[in-house]
Design a protein around this nucleic acid. Sequence first.
DNA 1: GATATATGCTTGCGTAATCAAGCATTATGC
DNA 2: GCATAATGCTTGATTACGCAAGCATATATC
Lengths: 140, 140
Amino acid sequence: MTHESLSSIIVIQNALLSSRFSKRAGNRLSAHGISLTEYLVMHYLERLPQNSVSRIELAEYLGMSASGVTRLIAPMEKIKIIEKVTNPRDARQSQVRLSKAGQRLYSEARISFEHICSELVGSLSQSQQEKLLEFYAKVT
Amino acid sequence: MTHESLSSIIVIQNALLSSRFSKRAGNRLSAHGISLTEYLVMHYLERLPQNSVSRIELAEYLGMSASGVTRLIAPMEKIKIIEKVTNPRDARQSQVRLSKAGQRLYSEARISFEHICSELVGSLSQSQQEKLLEFYAKVT
DNA sequence: GATATATGCTTGCGTAATCAAGCATTATGC
DNA sequence: GCATAATGCTTGATTACGCAAGCATATATC
């Protein structure tokens, strides 16, 4: 039994860690009635310069399939935190935008989210967190 | 719109990254007929000193529920890569052990897994990988 | 312009996980 | 030593995804 490479241990630990993180963050967000994935959508949309984006781009960002995005967005539309924007140039596309209510919900949820995140990675110093983020950028 | 804290960006990037990692690793492992989660089970069992463990401990390691482990292990038992070991001290428990065939399968799958992992994190230097692993240990 | 192909999205179905409830078995309090 | 509680696991129902196929629209070829 030879021993594992560093890289494989990283991937394994990353998987286990991310599962714990997601569970804790999702738990906290459920108080606002949203899932972690839904939060990620709002986070992405909020930060867009043009504020609307196609489902395909969203899927790419989330690392999900197009069908996954369809089923993810549908209930968000129903409760009006997301709006459909038709693209006049291309009737196939229906873009997606955060509504006013969505922005409000996001800014509320963000407080909880920030809080749980600082708990989760709080054992790292500021400079360690910066370094970690650099590493993430490099492997992306 | 104030800006996000470092810690929340880390948690978000970690979620997105891990989703990509898991997909790529799972893809590669599917050539061996196993999922990433199944690989994690084998990885964990292989490295145990006593070589068998209760389902509860396994669930804890994986960050899964007990019922999740039940349904995860069942097919692995059926194809005989995992063996059930009854605990004479406690009839409620049924421990889990890697069979000979399981060990063989793991050592084959490991080659693929190591390969894809070194692709995934290969853009980090050795010392960066070590640092990353330290960070993971700290936040765990 | 008509046909073929590509693109954006949705739908049907399968899989992997969760939670809540339940069943055995073991441990505890009196 | 009997009732109650706790523990280990399984089962039923639900949820969140993926893949394959399909539909509508857009683009390319001729």
